[in-house]
Computed example of a mutant assay.
Amino acid sequence: MSIDFHLGRPAAGARIVVAMSGGVDSSVVAVLAAKTGAEVIGVTLQLYDHGEAVRRSGSCCAGQDIYDAKTVCDRLGIAHYVLDYESRFRTGVIDRFADEYAMGRTPVPCSMCNQGVKFTDLIGFARDLGADCLATGHYVRRVEREGRIEMWKGRDPSRDQSYFLYGTTADQLAYLRFPLGDLPKSETRRLAEEAGLIVANKPDSQDICFVPDGDYASLVKRLRPETAAPGEIVHVDGRVLGSHEGVVHFTIGQRRGIEVGGQPEPLYVVRIDPEQRQLVVGPRSALAVASALVEGINWLAEDQREVSAKVRSLARPVDGSWDGERLTFANPEYGVAPGQSAVFYEGDRLLGGGTIVETEAAAMREAEAA
C-alpha cells in the first residue's frame, strides 16, 4: 500500500519526520513514509524521567514505548531520535491538568498536549532538520480543496481524533501529514503485521497517558493537596445534604460517589465550588445547559454562525449557533462543563474550537424568558 505524502518534490530528495509514540499507528506511518523513497527520521518524545518511564508500561511515551519505537526504526533502517521533553510536558500539560481540576473544571489534556509539545515543539524540531513535513498517526484527514488546506474527521468514525486537534493552526496543518486518516484500525494492524512489526498487536494507549491506572484523583491530590479537603454536598435548592472527601473526586455530570441517602431521585454533580469546597448536586434536569461561553477560539476554516458542535470527544455533534463568544445549543445539552473543549464542524470538516469557560443553565434561561 502506498500513500501520497504530498511532498511537493521528488521523494528521492525529500525528508519526512515521523512522530513515533511506540504504538502501532505511528509505527505504520513510518512504514508508509519509508515506502515513498524519501529519507525518514523517527522522533519520540520522552515525557517522563527514565525511572518513571520504565514504570509506566502501557502509557504513551513511556520506557517500553521508546524501546518499541527504536526497534521499529531499526527494522526499517531509519534514524531515530529521542527528545527529552519531560520538563515541558510537566509544566505545559500535567501541572495545567492539576490546576484545572483545582478550579473545579474538567480539562482535556490531550488537546493541551497536541497544542504544545506534540505539534508546536515537534514541528519546530522537524523544520530544524530541514524536513518537508511532519507525519503523525492521528486518525484525521488533511484535505486540499479549492486552494486551501482543511482538516476533516477520520474516515472511520470510531477512530476519529479531530476533537483533540482543533487547536492546530493553518500553518501547522500545511506542514503536517496524517496518512492513516482514510484507514480503519483493522487495516493499520494488518499493515503492521505485513511489515513484521513487533507492535502489530500492541494494545492502544490510554487517552490520559500520565494516568495509566485511571486514578487521576491521586495525581491531582499529590500535586494540589487542597483539592482533597472535605466539604459540603449542597442541593441546588440550598439544602445541605451531607459531606464529601474532596472535590478532586468529582466532575460535572457525575452520579457515582455522591453518598447521600433518602433522596426521591438520583442526584448528579451540577457545579463545583472549590473555594467554598462545595459540591452542588441536583436532578438530571439541572444539568441541562442552554449555552456556553467559549474562549481561546482557533479557526481552521471560516467563522460560521450555524455550526455542529461537540463538547465531549465521544459525543455526537449537536446543532448550535455561534455569535462570536457564546455557543447556543439548539436543544439543551447535558454534562457540559467548564474546561471541556467545544469543537465546531460542518459535516466532516473541522471548523475550529475553543475552551468552555462558563455555562448557562437551561432552567435559568427559561426562568428569564418567563
Rank of each mutant, 00 (worst) to 15 (best):
L219C: 01
S186Q: 11
L197I: 01
A229M: 12
A200C: 03
L183P: 00
V240A: 07
S186P: 00
D215Y: 05
H235A: 13
N201Y: 10
R177G: 01
R190K: 11
D182V: 08
C209H: 13
A217G: 00
G181Q: 05
A217K: 10
T169E: 08
R177H: 04
I233V: 14
A195C: 04
V240T: 12
V220K: 05
F178Y: 15
V247N: 11
K185V: 02
P203N: 08
H249M: 08
E232M: 07
E245G: 12
D171S: 13
I208N: 11
P225R: 12
V199A: 05
G231F: 04
P184T: 09
R189Y: 06
T251E: 15
Y163V: 01
H235R: 09
G196Y: 06
L219K: 04
R177D: 03
L219E: 01
D213N: 15
H249R: 15
L183Y: 13
Y166Q: 12
F164R: 04
Y175E: 05
Y163S: 04
D215F: 02
R177A: 07
L165W: 01
G246I: 03
V236L: 10
L219R: 03
D215P: 00
R190C: 07
S243R: 14
T169Q: 07
D207C: 12
A228H: 07
A195G: 04
P230A: 10
L180E: 02
D171H: 07
G167S: 14
R239K: 14
P230Y: 08
H244S: 09
L223N: 06
G231L: 06
K185Q: 08
F210H: 10
C209T: 09
G238C: 04
D213V: 02
A170Q: 13
L180H: 03
L197P: 00
A195F: 03
R190V: 06
G242K: 07
T251V: 15
A174R: 15
R224E: 06
K202I: 01
S218A: 15
G246F: 07
